[in-house]
């Protein structure tokens, strides 16, 4: 005799459990997909945390998306991407 024996209840509920399992996997895939889309779009990633933070403040003047890099040895005023 097997060490663990399936109760009849487990067999009866197999379809239901398998269905629920698939639904949960689907849910994980949806949330993962949403995350990828939102990160790629550059949506706001932080929420208000009871304290003003510089990273949450609206930019006062149109600043470049990332700071321009200055190539080593380049004359001042000349920037490269």
């Amino acid at each position: 005799m097997a060490f663990t024996r399936d109760h009849e209840l487990h067999r009866r509920r197999f379809g239901r459990n398998a269905g629920l399992g698939l639904v949960l996997i689907g849910f994980v895939v949806l949330v993962f997909g949403l995350t990828i889309v939102k990160v790629q779009r550059g949506d706001k990633m932080q929420a208000y945390d009871h304290q003003p933070r510089v990273s949450m403040l609206p930019a006062s003047d149109p600043a470049p998306a990332r700071p321009a890099k200055i190539a080593p040895g380049a004359p001042i005023g000349q920037v490269s991407e």
Binding site: L9, G19, L20
Partner: peptide, 14 residues
Amino acid sequence: GILERDTEGQFGDY
């Protein structure tokens, strides 16, 4: 009671 219910909801019922 659940063990004694002869009819039980399947996935399709939900």
